[in-house]
Every structure is written in C-alpha cells, then in structure tokens.
Write a protein that binds this DNA or RNA. Sequence first.
DNA 1: GATTATATCAGTAATAGTTCTTAATATTGG
DNA 2: CCAATATTAAGAACTATTACTGATATAATC
Lengths: 130, 130
Amino acid sequence: MLKHSKQRDAIKNFLADRYDHPTAETVYMNIKKEFPNISLGTVYRNLSLLAEIGEIQKLSTGIGPDRFDGNTAPHYHFICNCCGNVLDLNVNGLEHINILAAQDFDGEIEGHVTYFFGKCPCCKANGRAS
Amino acid sequence: MLKHSKQRDAIKNFLADRYDHPTAETVYMNIKKEFPNISLGTVYRNLSLLAEIGEIQKLSTGIGPDRFDGNTAPHYHFICNCCGNVLDLNVNGLEHINILAAQDFDGEIEGHVTYFFGKCPCCKANGRAS
DNA sequence: GATTATATCAGTAATAGTTCTTAATATTGG
DNA sequence: CCAATATTAAGAACTATTACTGATATAATC
C-alpha cells in the first residue's frame, strides 16, 4: 500500500520540469532547497519507486551515475561523447526493432533500451573532439 | 607504448573461448587458476584497456556489474528479465538506426548501444515469470 | 476527533563495483 | 646486458547505491 508523501511529490515535480536528466545527487541538491532535511537515501528510494511504478524513467547509460527522466512518453536518449550531456531524441520507426530481434530468437522479446552516442549540436558547432 | 603481458593475454584468451559474457569477478576467478597471484585490479585494468583498444566489448546493462564479451563482431545482446542471463543476438537491418536517429538532430550520431529484454528460450519453455 | 497500523522519513552504516596508489617486477628498445 | 618504463600484486580509497534504525507522517478505522 502506497502512502502519499511530500518528499516524493517534490521529487516527481522537480523531474517533470526538467529536460536535462539529472542524477540522484542533483535531485537531492535541488529538493534540499524545499526540504533542507531530506536525506539522499530518501531521494534514491523514491526515484527507484517512481521508476518502478512507471512515473519516471531511469537511465543507466553505463557512463557515470544513473540519471532520471520525468518524461514517460516513449522517446530515446543521446549521450554526447564530448561533454557527457544527455539529450532527448525522438526517433521514428524504431518500434519494430523488437520484431527484428525476435526473428531468429526462440525466447520472447519484451522491450529494448537504446542509447545513441556522438557529438551534441553544441560540441559539433564548437569543433570539440569526441 | 603498450607492452606485452601474460596476464592480459590470458584474460583475452579466456574471453575468446566463452559466450556467456562474464563479469570482471568471473574472469578473475578463472584466470586465478592459471595465475594464482593475479589481482582483481589487474583484471579490471586489462579489461578496460582491451575494451578501449577494441579487442573486447564491455557491456553495461544497467543491471548488476559490467560484463565482457570477447566477440568483437557486430552483434546485439539480450538480457533475460527472469534469470538475468545475457545472450548474443544477431539482428539484421539495425545498421540504419543511426540514420533514423540523425533525422531530426543537429548533432552527430556516431553509434548506438542497444539491449533487448525479455524471456530467454529456457525461461520461456519453463513458464517462468519475468 | 482519537486510535491504530504502517509507509515513509532522516541519519547513518554498510555494500558493490571499480579505480587509484605504491613499491616491486617484467618487458622491450638500445 | 642495461636502462627505461609498462605492468604487476596488494590493498586503500572512492563512487554510487542500498539497507538498517528508531522516529514521524499518513491514512484507515473506530
């Protein structure tokens, strides 16, 4: 049974307003402005809980700490090899790749996770190296 | 300047013979049979080094520790939601998804990482739940 | 509204996975 | 063979995350 909590609300609302996929640490630092006594453990617990019930998305990019996304609409993510920023990426026509994957596979494909890597618009414009 | 090392060779050869994507810990346990004094740090350092120069692949699935794959030929990976095993998956027609991703994107897509999730053939056959 | 059950909390300790440091050893170019 | 230096083993340190604790907040029941 799930009880209401101000801390959890604040975490969810904070993520809903951002598009930069903050880490647990960043969420913690920011929620602290509103709840000076909140603990990092509470932030982690609620982020995990929210991700589990599908109200936020957890991004495990393999580079640094996990990141969180308040946007639950289906979309993909791009990670800049150069500056490390994580950007939203709308990619059409990728829905079918589960079917492609299932072609020669005896198990059951239920979903996939894809991260794109490269140079973000900013780093590309400034000629920075990957 | 890269010097030759027996330990690194052993790690690379070990991975070349396996198709189960072992973790650093598993590599360590096995190499220990041949080099009883090898240290876990050495295993980690060489795995990172080998991945960096492209002689093995590092898999950061977001679930548990990183895994390593001696097969450098392009292929995808499947993670069983049920038993956690990581399987190789050959998926045709996925080469173009970088182009799809680049469509509405001002940066530069250099690559992607995709993990498929679901029920492996074994868990499916045994009717296990995800 | 008071009572009760329990989910959540803050604070902190503990863990997992990985990287770093150090002094000794192994490899290679000259 | 010798000097230069990459690599090693051992263990400390570090980062990210989870677990434990007793206290507090929330919601259901009386």
